[in-house]
Amino acid sequence: MDYKKAERVFSAIGIFCVWFVLIFLFSIAVKLFIDGFHRIFDPKFYISYPSRFPEEAGILSAWVDTIYIMLGAIFWSVVLGIPAGIYLEEFGGKGKIARLIEANITNLSAVPSIVYGLLALGIFVYRFKFGESILTAGLTLGLLMLPVIVVTTRESLRRIPRAIREGAYALGATNYELVFHHLLPYSLGGILTGVIIATSRAIGETAPLLTIGALTFIAFLPPPPWESFIEMLKSPFTMLAIQMFNWVSRPQEAFHKNAAAAGFILLVLCLLLNSISYYLRYKMRKKYQW
């Protein structure tokens, strides 16, 4: 049998499959761009509230709320995720508690995002009485990001050689000195990469926020946090992805154009965040070579 031919055929099939996937991605971007062309370059789209007239509808409340919610989500996931990652990698050892937490996080990362929405609806909204608010939304997305942050924190700590830890201990450093003076600074780039990746995933999350009662028609902005932080946390919310979902599920075609424009903006945001994280990873690899 002509094995060289067979191999060449297989290579061609492989290349074809890869191209199929890439073209798929590319055609999504092109489709969104063409459909939403007029709205993407319409400055009014960015500074108007949603409206029942498709030409006047915009994403002002959506992108402002998105910023607040994502800041909240990043806060919660960083505050809970990084120390948890440090504990599991550095101090947990092979103990029972550490193993249990580890298995638990692996499982959590595979739980469908809409289940987090049900958790938030049942616990945060009704049992804790946080309401359908920016606080609840931030907390929910923060929990969703948590497994990614824990895993990347651990991975970047693992890359630091043992000698650093032993050297620090030998000089009489305590555990917290070791962490703050050595481990955190050296692993910060890797952790940051994880935070950005997790953010880019969470920014497009729609399902969990729909279940906790995101509104799709908000014609006001939350009060700025420097005026009233509590009121800001308590105010109802929408998000870019939710606004897009609302527009795409309407029958009128004019709204689909808005949906396409919002989708294109989301896509660009994700691409941007992903490229930043790639760049950071590349930089970090160059900076610390053990």
């Binding site: 999504i28 729609t206 396409a260 994700c270 992903n274």
Partner: peptide
Amino acid sequence: FLEAVPTVVYGY
């Protein structure tokens, strides 16, 4: 990057 594309965009 394909993994990071928002799912609602795939829906569209």
